[in-house]
C-alpha cells in the first residue's frame, strides 16, 4: 500500500473516533483529574471553593463512618461476588442440559438483569414488608420460626443481607451468560473420556468443567468486584440505610451537611483501588 493511502486511512480513522473519544475525554478523563483537584478544596454545591490542603483526607481517615462503610462494602462484595458466581455457575450447568422449554427458561432467568432497578426494588420491598409481605407470612405464620414480624429492610444489619440477596438475584444472569457461552464450547469428548475413566457426574464437574471454566470464573469474579465496588442504585434504592462506600460518598456529597470536597477525596482513594483492579483485569484476564 502506498504511503498516501496509509495516511488517508489514518486521517479517516482519527476523524471517526474523534467525537466519541472527545466526549469521553472531556467527560470522563478530565473529571477524574478534576476530582483529584477538588479533593484539596472545601467545595460548596454552588461551586465556590476554598483551598484546604490535605484536610479532606485527614478528616476522612479520622472518620469512623468511613471505616464502617468500608466494612459494609467488604461484606457486600464478598457476599455478592461469591453468590453471583456460584449461582451463575449452577444455572449455566443446569441450562446446558437438554430439556423441554429450555429456551423459555433461558429467557426468563435473564429478566432480573434487564429490569429497571427502580421497579423491581418495590417488589422486593413488598416481599419483606412487615405487614403485608410474604416473607413474614412464611416465617411467622406458616413456619412459626419466630413470633414477631420483623422489618428486615428497616434494620441496617439485616438489610445488608437483603441487599446482597437482591444483588445476587439481579446480577447472577450475567455470570450465567458468560459461563454458558464457555460451557457450550467445551468439547464433548472431554466428558466422554472422563466418563470412560470412571468419573461420576461430580468427578466430571471437578476434573473437566471447573478447569475449563477457570479463566471465565476469574473474569467473573474480578468484574463483579469492579462493578460492585461502584454499585449505587441497587443498594440505595432498596435500603438507603445500608451504607456501602458509594452510598457514604453520595451522602457526603449531596445530603445533609454537604461536603463535596470530602466526597471527592473518597472517590480519589476508591479510584486508586479501582485502577489497581482494572489493571489486574487487563493484564491477567484479557491477555488469557
Amino acid at each position: 500500500m502506498s504511503s498516501i493511502l496509509v495516511k488517508n486511512e489514518a486521517r479517516l480513522g482519527l476523524k471517526l473516533v474523534a467525537p466519541a473519544v472527545g466526549i469521553i475525554g472531556l467527560l470522563v478523563i478530565y473529571p477524574i483529574l478534576f476530582n483529584v483537584y477538588l479533593s484539596f478544596f472545601d467545595v460548596q454545591l454552588n461551586g465556590s471553593k476554598t483551598f484546604v490542603g490535605l484536610d479532606n483526607y485527614t478528616d476522612l481517615l479520622g472518620n469512623p463512618r468511613y471505616y464502617h462503610s468500608i466494612g459494609v462494602s467488604v461484606i457486600y462484595l464478598i457476599g455478592t461476588v461469591v453468590g453471583t458466581t456460584v449461582l451463575g455457575l449452577a444455572a449455566s450447568i443446569l441450562m446446558n442440559q437438554e430439556f423441554r422449554f429450555r429456551n423459555l427458561a433461558r429467557g426468563l432467568i435473564l429478566l432480573p438483569y434487564f429490569a429497571p432497578v427502580i421497579s423491581v426494588v418495590f417488589g422486593w420491598q413488598f416481599i419483606f414488608d412487615p405487614v403485608n409481605g410474604i416473607y413474614n407470612h412464611v416465617v411467622v405464620d406458616v413456619l412459626h420460626l419466630t413470633d414477631t414480624r420483623e422489618n428486615l429492610i428497616g434494620n441496617p444489619d439485616s438489610a445488608l443481607f437483603v441487599v446482597i440477596l437482591f444483588d445476587i438475584w439481579k446480577h447472577f444472569p450475567i455470570a450465567y451468560l458468560l459461563f454458558l457461552a464457555k460451557l457450550q464450547s467445551v468439547p464433548k469428548d472431554l466428558y466422554e473420556a472422563a466418563a470412560i475413566d470412571g468419573q461420576n457426574a461430580w468427578g466430571r464437574f471437578w476434573h473437566v468443567t471447573l478447569p475449563e471454566l477457570r479463566f471465565v470464573i476469574a473474569t467473573v469474579v474480578l468484574l463483579r468486584i469492579i462493578w460492585n465496588l461502584n454499585r449505587f442504585e441497587d443498594v440505595y434504592l432498596l435500603a438507603p440505610n445500608v451504607e456501602t462506600l458509594p452510598i457514604f460518598t453520595y451522602y457526603q456529597a449531596f445530603a445533609g451537611i454537604v461536603d463535596q470536597g470530602g466526597a471527592a477525596a473518597i472517590s480519589v482513594i476508591q479510584l486508586l483501588v479501582l485502577v489497581g483492579l482494572i489493571w489486574l483485569y487487563v493484564r491477567k484476564v484479557l491477555k488469557w
Binding site: 473519544v21 476530582n35 462493578w227 458509594p246 472517590s267
Partner: peptide, 26 residues
C-alpha cells in the same frame, strides 16, 4: 484508544458524580 474505552467503562458513575456536578455548575 481501544483499551482506554474498556478502562473508562469500568469507572463507575459514583466516582464521577462530584466532578461532573461541579463542572456543570462552573
Amino acid at each position: 484508544m481501544a483499551n482506554g474505552v474498556l478502562f473508562v467503562y469500568m469507572v463507575g458513575g459514583v466516582l464521577l458524580m462530584v466532578p461532573l456536578y461541579q463542572m456543570s455548575v462552573n
